[in-house]
Every structure is written in structure tokens, then in C-alpha cells.
């Protein structure tokens, strides 16, 4: 079932001024309920604008954003309800922490929703368990946490609103492999346990290949490709043409294919690649 539908969306920054920029040009996208959808594209392709349209932070210049079949701008006064439903984690979200303790900061969203204190407590506990923050950390100041912990606390602040759709703009940017893996683990866990829809923007093709069910490729303010990982990554040539890379595994398989080795060029995970090559080496895997 379609959770979010973008219909002929266009977005123009500073219209009518010399600085006018078209960030999105007639974009139509369907995001299926319960999937993890990845948005890839280089900087300036319009993907950050796109995610800010999903929760009504920005209003499209033309076109409609439908969440569960209703236009989110039908009642502009109730836009904050949309923001609780579609939780957006912006880039480097740890820079927005402002409360004295992590706990209070996570409570900010639920409190804005007007929940009672008991419910808020429950939400804090739930959100922090999803992102793997220990209880003793909750009483600490954001200053006392490591970079990865701060990032997870900020994500917990959004998860505490129990959004139907969790949107994350480069959630792993600047983190080391351990920090990155922890973040991705919490995202997958949230999806698996609540059935929420997840949208992730990332630059790392390897991460996207590992995480996503569906991929949306953006370039020059338009959606140029949409499909599952296999469909998208098998178009390596086209991806490279718009300045994007493909996962190392896929690149390896394509190189082998070029060299005349008979392998499937659309493989995008290490596991599949190993079994594909094992077949080649005539080993029982």
C-alpha cells in the first residue's frame, strides 16, 4: 500500500529573485508502506529538499504531497500533526540537542504533542531502547556523550513521537563504522517492530545496498530511476554518468563480467557475491 505519494512536485527557492533555483522539477514518487526506501543523488540533486517536503517543513511550489491518501497541505494549520506522523531526522541532528539532560531532550517532541507525563516517560523508555541508549546515559548532559551517542539521542527524540514514517537525512554522516552500524541497527529495529515506513538519504552505496528495499535515484532536480536495489545497481553505467558510484561488490562483478567471466552483474551484497563466485569455483556453498 502506498504510504506517501508525491504528485508532480516542483519546488523553487527564492522565486522571482536573481537567486532563483529550481530544486525539484515535476517529481512524482510513491513510497510503499513498511519499506525502507533509500534516496540517492549527489549534493544539489534536490534530495534534501525532497525529504523536507515529506513532513511539511517546506511547502511545494506546485504539486501535492499525500500521506495516507490525504493532502498534507489541505489544512495548513494542522501541519504539525503531519510532522508527528512523519518524523524527520535532519543532517547532523546532534547539533539541535538543547536540554540539560538527554531524557528531557527526547521528551521535547512528545511534550509538543501534548501527551501526559506518564505517556512521555513511556515514550522516552521506548525510544532510548530502540536506539540502544542505556538508562544511566539518559540523565547525562548531551556534552558528556560521544558523537555516536549524541546522534542516537537525537534520533530517539524523533522516534519518541512514534512516527508512522521515519525520514533520515544522512543519518551516518561523519560517524565511524561502529557508530554507523549502531544507527542502522536501530533504524531496522524500529521498522521491524513497529512496521513503520523508513526513508533514508545517504551517499554510501554500500550502506544503501545493505539496508534498502527500494531506491530512488535523483539527479538535476528530477527522479531518474526508481526500483529495488538489483534493478537500480544493474544500471551502473547510468549511475556513473550522473556522478554516482555503485557498491564495490557490484563493481567487482561487472569487472569480472567484462573480463569474460560468467557471473551475475546485478549482485550487490557480499553474501550473494560469495555464493555466486562459489558456484563458479564449483564449491558447494
Amino acid at each position: 500500500m502506498t504510504k506517501i505519494k508525491l504528485e508532480n512536485i516542483s519546488y523553487v527557492y527564492s522565486p522571482g529573485t536573481p537567486y532563483e533555483v529550481t530544486a525539484l522539477n515535476d517529481v512524482s514518487v510513491d513510497i510503499t508502506e513498511g519499506t525502507i526506501t533509500g534516496i540517492i543523488g549527489h549534493t544539489g540533486s534536490g534530495k534534501s529538499t525532497l525529504v523536507q517536503l515529506l513532513n511539511g517543513l517546506e511547502k511545494p511550489s506546485s504539486g501535492r504531497v499525500l500521506v495516507d491518501g490525504t493532502d498534507i497541505w489541505e489544512k495548513p494549520k494542522e501541519i504539525s500533526k503531519v510532522r508527528f506522523k512523519v518524523g524527520l531526522v535532519m543532517q547532523y541532528p546532534e547539533y539541535q540537542l538543547f536540554e540539560e539532560t538527554i531524557k528531557e531532550d527526547i521528551a521535547f517532541g512528545p511534550r509538543n504533542m501534548g501527551l501526559d507525563e506518564a505517556e512521555i516517560e513511556e515514550r522516552i523508555a521506548l525510544a532510548s531502547s530502540f536506539v540502544g541508549l542505556d538508562e544511566e546515559l539518559l540523565e547525562k548532559s548531551p556534552f558528556d556523550l560521544s558523537g555516536g551517542q549524541k546522534r542516537r539521542a537525537a534520533i530517539a527524540g524523533i522516534i519518541a513521537m512514534k512516527p508512522d514514517v521515519l525520514v533520515l537525512d544522512e543519518p551516518a554522516a561523519g560517524l565511524d563504522p561502529l557508530g554507523r552500524d549502531e544507527i542502522f541497527k536501530s533504524i531496522v529495529k524500529y521498522r521491524n517492530e513497529t512496521g513503520a515506513t523508513v526513508v533514508i538519504v545517504s551517499h554510501s552505496m554500500e550502506d544503501m545496498a545493505r539496508l534498502c528495499d527500494e531506491l530512488i535515484v535523483m539527479a538535476h532536480s528530477k527522479v531518474v530511476m526508481q526500483g529495488n536495489c538489483r534493478e537500480v545497481f544493474s544500471n551502473a553505467g547510468e549511475l556513473e554518468k550522473i556522478g554516482l558510484s555503485i557498491p564495490q561488490v557490484t563493481k567487482l562483478m561487472m569487472l569480472l563480467k567484462e573480463k569474460g567471466v560468467c557471473v551475475d552483474g546485478g549482485v550487490y551484497t557480499v553474501k550473494d557475491a560469495v555464493s555466486e563466485l562459489a558456484k563458479l569455483f564449483k564449491i558447494d556453498h
Partner: peptide, 16 residues
């Protein structure tokens, strides 16, 4: 620019 980003981030958490 940073102020803009923080405002958006807090709006996303329902700040009014």
C-alpha cells in the same frame, strides 16, 4: 544558515 537548520529541526519535533 545554521539558525535556519535548527529552526527546521525543532519544527520537525513539533515546536511552535
Amino acid at each position: 544558515e545554521e539558525t535556519d537548520k535548527i529552526i527546521s529541526a525543532q519544527k520537525a519535533r513539533g515546536a511552535d
